[in-house]
Amino acid sequence: MLRAALEIIDRESVDRLSMRRLGEALGRDPMVLYRHAVNKAALLDGVVELVLEQLTVDATDPDWRHQLRSIARDFRRLAVAHPNTVALLITHPLDTPLALRPLGTLRPLEHILELLTRADFSSVDALHIYRALFGFLHGHILNELQEIIERPEETSDLLRLGMHRLPIGEFPLLRALATELADYDGAAELERGLDILLAGLTTTMSAAGARPRRERRS
């Protein structure tokens, strides 16, 4: 049922998903589906869980930087594969208090906390790192999926982006970046952002591999 719901969302949109349309796709009476999901919100919770089940987190990886980079790449892959679910992945879980969210939405958080505490971060610092990583990821994904070329047939980057509409004499720095804006590469941009984020975390956070291990009291 959840796979069929995800297919409808991928093909059309979240708004087009309904118990009636899902029943038609499955060849079932929509009323029967309410035995498995009491309403559309519960159905969407299940779809979010289904997508996040595909997010791989290896909490035993001894290289926390490598693992966070791998998680970020995996999250982007899922978002690009299911762009119509991005709003669900980013905002839907936040509509519910943490302890009441579907367990599948909490497992990536738990596993990342385990990864980072294994690397000798405190649990509080591990939470800050998780928030920093996913704050960056959410912003990156929204930027990447909303990058729009107004007139792709044009050969001038200024015209392709519609920047000729900007007031003449204003936004000179933005105009100068027309080629870079038109040639946006989501995967490469992700890597640049991760380089900056992970370098900052390594500098500011104390953990095994980032700074010398602090002596432990017996």
Results as ranks from 00 to 15, higher is better:
I148N: 06
Q67I: 10
S70I: 01
A81W: 04
E150R: 08
L137G: 06
D45L: 05
M31P: 02
T60M: 03
R160Y: 03
P93T: 13
P93N: 11
P83D: 04
P212K: 11
E12S: 10
I129M: 08
N143Q: 05
A99Q: 14
T96Y: 12
L177V: 01
G193H: 08
R192P: 00
L158A: 02
T202P: 04
L173P: 01
G200L: 07
A81R: 13
L6P: 00
Q146N: 11
S122F: 05
R21C: 03
I8F: 05
G135L: 10
R151S: 07
L94D: 14
L161W: 00
G193T: 06
E110A: 15
E180G: 01
A4Y: 02
I112G: 03
A41T: 04
G23A: 07
G186L: 05
L68G: 08
R76I: 03
A126P: 02
Y184W: 14
E147Y: 11
R65D: 08
D120L: 09
D10A: 06
D185I: 09
E49K: 03
A42H: 09
D63K: 10
E49M: 11
F121R: 08
R192E: 12
N39D: 15
G186N: 08
P62N: 06
A41R: 14
P212E: 13
V38S: 13
S18F: 04
T203K: 15
S18L: 04
T56Q: 14
L55C: 07
M205C: 14
A72E: 11
P108D: 11
R118D: 13
P108V: 12
P172S: 12
H92Q: 08
E180P: 00
N39L: 04
G135T: 03
G135H: 05
A182C: 10
A79D: 04
G169M: 04
A59L: 07
R16I: 00
M163V: 03
H92C: 09
A207F: 14
Q67H: 05
G186K: 02
R107M: 06
P97M: 07
L173F: 09
T117H: 10
T85S: 14
H128N: 10
